[in-house]
């Protein structure tokens, strides 16, 4: 072990063996180029094989290694130990989600919401394959590109006190992705998303705390997506109610 070390205070919850969660401290080597995930892997490989956590790509793409690092939702593959050293680093499962074991959260609710909001392309028109691609201009792409960068890491949910207080809230990423497809010139599914996205537990539950956008590792800006959806929906409502030539829905 190198001279310098750093302590990890890791949240442990093993429901089959213990009733209450606890924190376990591990002393690991401190290296300038190590991220928190490297330190966890060191623990798993060298110190305690019983520790459970999710990870995959190690390069900020898969979105599976999100955890609370000193109280902040972070991708542990992008959180360098040098930013915390010599203080200890406290690692906990993502806030507001049920914990299955140690640092592993239950993401079923999130996956269900992604399905509810139909976070996929619903083509505006059926086009036979032999007619070629659904073309899009760079300007049309620019309108939704930022929101399409979401990697489903759920950091935004762990930052959102509204989701913490009301787990029925559709949440930042699901709404941002709904908005992403609504803004896509090739998509025609906005009407199918309306009921879920524009419900009381959709965009109108958001109080614009804005922490979701602050913690997003991909600069998706879900808070912006939600407020823009509010403006769009409000304008549509006025159009349908006040304007005699508006679309009555």
């Amino acid at each position: 072990m190198p001279d310098e070390t750093i302590n990890l205070e890791v949240f442990r919850f093993r429901p089959d063996e213990e009733d209450e969660p606890r924190y376990q401290t591990y002393e690991v080597p401190f290296r300038e180029d190590w991220v928190v995930l490297d330190a966890l892997n060191y623990v798993k490989d060298q110190l305690d094989g019983t520790l459970s956590y999710r990870w995959s790509c190690r390069m900020g793409v898969c979105g599976s290694c999100g955890m609370m690092v000193n109280g902040e939702p972070k991708l542990t593959c992008a959180a360098f130990l040098r930013d915390y050293h010599p203080d200890p680093v406290r690692i906990e499962p993502l806030n507001y989600f049920p914990v299955i074991r140690d640092l592993v959260i239950n993401m079923e609710d999130f996956l269900h919401k992604m399905g509810e909001v139909k976070a996929w392309l619903i083509p505006k028109e059926d086009k036979p394959l032999d007619e070629g691609e659904h073309l899009q201009t760079p300007a049309q792409l620019a309108h939704y590109k930022q929101f399409s960068m979401c990697i489903n890491c759920m950091l935004c949910y762990a930052a959102c006190p509204v989701y913490g207080l009301n787990p029925d809230f559709l949440g930042p990423a699901a709404i941002a992705l709904g908005q992403r497809y609504n803004l896509d010139s090739r998509d025609g599914g906005a009407d199918e998303r309306t009921e879920v996205m524009f419900s009381d537990e959709g965009i109108w539950e958001c109080t614009f705390v804005g922490d979701c956008s602050r913690v997003c590792p991909k600069n998706v800006d879900p808070a912006g997506a939600i407020q823009q959806a509010k403006v769009t929906h409000t304008l549509e409502w006025y159009q349908s109610v006040l304007s005699p030539w508006g679309n009555k829905k």
Binding site: F13, P15, P21, Y96, P98, N106, G164, V209, D211
Partner: peptide, 21 residues
């Protein structure tokens, strides 16, 4: 055996626990 999950309720002073909140 169905493992029990841990639910962590938000404390009443949640808005004092983070500067942004």
């Amino acid at each position: 055996k169905k493992s029990k999950e841990l639910i962590r309720p938000m404390p009443a002073n949640w808005w004092l626990q983070k500067r942004t909140y």
